[in-house]
Structures are given as C-alpha cells and as structure tokens.
C-alpha cells in the first residue's frame, strides 16, 4: 500500500541559548500507511513530541525530508498545505482551548477555513459525536469548567472538526481515568473506521494504545530503534523495560497463552482472554 506520510532520515535540532544545538531527532525514517494506527513509543526526552510536530508540519526538519502522499514537503506553502491535511492534538488540552463555550471552540478550526452556516454546524456536531462529547450537555459550557477527560475530548473534537487525513496525538491517554481512556479509544476507532484516516499516537505509556495500534516505532534519545508490528513487539518486554516502558499485563498474558497453544485473541478483550486461558486448561473457565 502506498504510504501517506513518510520520513526519510529526518533530524531536528533545537538551538541552545548561547551557542550550539540540542539534537531532538537523529535521522529518523519510517512510513505511515493510509488507515493505519501507528504508535511512536519512547521514554521521556526521546524526541516523540518533536516528531509529532514535524509530522504535523509545525516544525520544519533541520535534516532529511518529510513526504506526504509521495511528495516532498518543502518550503512554507507546502508546510501550510500539510497542516490542512494533518491534525495534531497536543498533550495539554488547555493549550488548544480558548473560546467561551465548547461549541464555539470546536467551530474555531472550520471557521478559520471559511466554513459557515449549516455546514459549520454539521461539522461541529459530527466532530463532537466522534469525540464522544455530548454537545447538548457540554456545548454551552466553558471549556475551562470541564474535567480533564472532557477537556481532552473537547480539544479532540476541535481537531476532528477539520477532518484531517492524518491525526497525530501526543500522549492522549496520560492523565485519563478508565472511562476517559475507553471513550478516547472508541473515538479513535470510530474516526479511523468512518474516515479511513491514519492515526499516529505518540506515547510512553503503551496500555491505552496497545489494542488500537497496528505498528510501533520504538525511539530513544532521538533515534529510531525499530519499527515492529504489535505481535512482534509483544515479545520485546525486556527491550521496552530497559527503556522504562512496560507492556500491558494482559498483552503479556495473551502472548504466554499463545505460546501454550491457545488461539490468538484480542488481548484487550477480557472474555476472549478468559476463553483462551480456559482452552489451555482443558475447557475450564
């Protein structure tokens, strides 16, 4: 499948106060396919957030090249065009919310693109629904009066209202309770299914994204260590542990069960796991 976004030896350095530079990304290369959920995993300071901003066209690589749809993204006008295709949800939802009501905030992006009238209303409603936010209940409230999980959903709706072909999320599951995580995972699954969009999730915490992601890029100190499919990464617990990351317990359990001869199961489905465990133990549950 032709990739939608690809990075070819992309580097990025921040200038240090005074002299010198700090390298945040060192020759990172990977491709993201259409409709794929791609996770960039790495410990704090591994360059993930910089990578997210490079993918969204907010930072221009200081080395290497970024390609969208096979075309090199170079120069200001192409970066601006890329920003229309790629949406980015920052880690802190507060950085993106500003309007006096949630509804107006969600409408900000489409308004900037010149969308007005019923079409605007429709895109706001559609985005709120996708993000799992009840517009009747929250639409008239101030975004700053919401809980962290609700704020994250409002900010996500603001990005989804632009219907990006590629959605980049920076640490979307951090700080969310179980309900918040479930809502967010459902929203991402829904957006991928309905729009066929690619989703890039940048995180150091694998539990939330594990059931969603097709492939994982593991990063450390600005360098890409490897790109692996979920089933291949499930056996790399020690490698991830050395980087301060942890496989979800149920992912480890699913792998162990598969090694004992159980059929492959969706590791985030407790019933399927129980059935698999039962099959290994001779039909008991």
């Amino acid at each position: 499948m032709a990739e939608i976004l690809s990075l070819e030896s992309v580097s990025y350095s921040y200038p240090l106060p005074g002299e010198g530079e700090a390298a945040a990304l060192r020759e990172v290369s990977f491709e993201v396919e259409p409709g794929e959920v791609f996770c960039v995993a790495g410990p704090n300071g591994s360059g993930k957030s910089t990578l997210a901003q490079v993918c969204a066209g907010l930072l221009s690589p200081t080395g290497g090249s970024l390609l969208y749809g096979g075309e090199k993204v170079e120069g200001r006008s192409r970066l601006r065009a890329l920003r229309k295709k790629v949406g980015l949800l920052f880690q802190s939802a507060e950085d993106q919310l500003f309007a006096d009501t949630v509804e107006k905030d969600i409408a900000f992006g489409p308004r900037c693109r010149g969308v007005r009238g019923p079409e605007l209303d429709q895109s706001v409603r559609g985005a709120a629904e996708l993000a799992g936010l009840d517009l009747e209940a929250f639409g008239g409230r101030s975004p700053f009066a919401l809980s962290e999980g609700e704020r994250r959903r409002a900010a996500l709706a603001g990005v989804l209202a632009l219907s990006p072909d590629v959605l980049v999320l920076d640490e979307p599951f951090i700080g969310l309770d179980y309900e918040g995580r479930t809502h967010l995972a459902a929203a991402l699954t829904g957006y991928r299914r309905d729009r066929g969009a690619s989703i890039i999730v940048v995180t150091h915490e694998l539990a939330g994204v594990w059931p969603l992601a097709d492939r994982f890029a593991v990063m450390d100190s600005g360098s890409l260590l490897r790109v692996a499919r979920r089933e291949d990464l499930a056996g790399a617990g020690d490698e991830l542990g050395a980087l301060g990351m942890q496989l979800p317990d149920w992912a480890v359990l699913a792998r162990e069960l598969a090694a004992l001869g159980a059929p492959p199961v969706n590791p985030s489905d407790p019933d399927a796991l129980a059935d698999a465990a039962g099959s290994v133990m001779g039909g008991r549950r």
Binding site: Q53, A56, L58, L59, R80, R83, G87, L88, L89, F90, D95, Q96, F98, F108, G109, P110, R111, C112, R113, G158, V159, L162
Partner: peptide, 12 residues
Amino acid sequence: KITRAQMARGAD
C-alpha cells in the same frame, strides 16, 4: 508552543 497548538487546528 500554544501558537503551534493553534496552528495545528486551523489558525493561520
């Protein structure tokens, strides 16, 4: 940072 965050959602 906030400027970039708003650019990511349509501000120009």
